[in-house]
C-alpha cells in the first residue's frame, strides 16, 4: 500500500505539483504498481554480488583539447525567457498578466 503521504513525499522529490485528487489517484495506482515491483522478491535467482556493466573496450578517455562552444543564440533559442545572454525566470508570474 502506497499512502497519500508517501506520494506527497515522492512528488516533492520529483518536483511534480499534484492536486489532492491526483495525489489520491496516484496513491491507488502506485499501490498496484509497487506490488508489481515487489514481484522482484519472488525471484529464485542468486543475487549477484557484483554489478555487470556493458562497456566492452572503453578504456581511453577524451583528450583535454578545446572545441569551439555552441553559438549563444542557439543555446538560448528554446528558452522561455532571456535577459541579455542570461536565461531568465521571473520570480513569480500570473497567466495573462505581464510582470516587470
Amino acid at each position: 500500500m502506497v499512502s497519500v503521504d508517501e506520494i506527497k513525499r515522492i512528488a516533492a522529490l520529483a518536483k511534480l505539483h499534484l492536486t489532492e485528487e491526483e495525489t489520491a489517484l496516484l496513491a491507488e495506482q502506485m499501490s498496484s504498481i509497487v506490488a508489481f515491483a515487489d514481484e522482484i522478491n519472488n525471484s529464485k535467482l542468486p543475487v549477484s554480488e557484483e554489478v555487470l556493466i556493458n562497456e566492452y573496450d572503453r578504456t581511453e578517455f577524451r583528450e583535454d583539447e578545446v572545441v569551439p562552444s555552441s553559438d549563444v543564440s542557439d543555446i538560448l533559442n528554446n528558452s522561455g525567457g532571456t535577459q541579455g545572454n542570461f536565461f531568465m525566470v521571473k520570480d513569480k508570474a500570473k497567466a495573462g498578466r505581464r510582470y516587470g
Binding site: R9, I10, L13, L16, V47
Partner: peptide, 25 residues
C-alpha cells in the same frame, strides 16, 4: 513516481540495488 520511489532512501536497497544485482544474475 515509481522511479523516484525505488531510488529514495528507505527503498533503494530493496528495489534498485536488488534489481541491479538481479540484472547481473
Amino acid at each position: 513516481i515509481l522511479g523516484t520511489y525505488v531510488l529514495s532512501s528507505g527503498y533503494f536497497d530493496a528495489y534498485y540495488k536488488k534489481a541491479q544485482r538481479l540484472r547481473a544474475s
